[in-house]
Design a binder for these strands. Sequence first.
DNA 1: TCGGATACGGATAATTTTTTCCGTATCCCC
DNA 2: GGGGATACGGAAAAAATTATCCGTATCCGA
Lengths: 145, 145
Amino acid sequence: MYEKKIPKNFSCGMAVLMEIIGGKWKSYLIYLINNGVRRPADLQRAIPSASRRVLDLQLRELEFHAIIKRVIYPEMPPKVEYFLTPFGESMLPVVASMEAWGGEYMETFRQLMESKKKSMHTEGESVEIKQEPVIRGRRTLAKAV
Amino acid sequence: MYEKKIPKNFSCGMAVLMEIIGGKWKSYLIYLINNGVRRPADLQRAIPSASRRVLDLQLRELEFHAIIKRVIYPEMPPKVEYFLTPFGESMLPVVASMEAWGGEYMETFRQLMESKKKSMHTEGESVEIKQEPVIRGRRTLAKAV
DNA sequence: TCGGATACGGATAATTTTTTCCGTATCCCC
DNA sequence: GGGGATACGGAAAAAATTATCCGTATCCGA
């Protein structure tokens, strides 16, 4: 069982949210559970490329953070279901806006990734060279920053 | 130079956004640049615990995704500034809502992390045991899911 | 000369996340 | 017996991210 060595600093809300939702499959899990896919095997079938072990781990993390709750039914074979908590539901508008923004950027993003594959690194595109003369006074100003 | 082996699937907007903003320091960088901290050394001073190398790498990624642009001034010693692009600015409302949600959860989060340190794993808290009888018909229903 | 300032990248090492593989359990059907 | 279904965790390996260390360059001041 891995134990982290470097303490994390959660001094801003963004870092907190990224800690909670940052795993590879967590947003998929939240979406699926919110849409009625509740049993572990069904979640696995819905995300066939995900490692079952990691799904389990990330479900446990979401549970730990009280985003979801786990309901165990006393029967055999085992039956378990996951539900969003009210607190987890409070996250849905944020998730929706993240999803919407990403969706708008999707096409551009794909083109970028394609061009990246073709030419590896063409990063000068957004570089702007200022045509200003070299004045010593500017150094002083920079120092004041 | 590391080369990734497993292709990623960006079939939802959420995955796209996480790819763009998912690095350890990226949200800090976006915040700082948006608030006028533009030069690499100033960014480094604003985040002293960050590795300078990783700051550079993540600035380059943000640039690649057209979230920020880099302006190089032709002078010596080198002078460079980063700015949010209009596209990058379109992300700010999303970032703000992420920040706000995380900020509300901050106190609870810290208490959870504290309790985790003390008892390592106390994960049964949100587990609910259903008190339903074992009926074979239920198996059939489960199969229909 | 050295140390400070500015900016940055390759190589390698350390840490972390994800994946694979092994194992646990019961029930049902061929 | 085997295979299928259900759910899950420890251990180790692989992949990915982050950090450290080395190096590149110019200018200025002690």
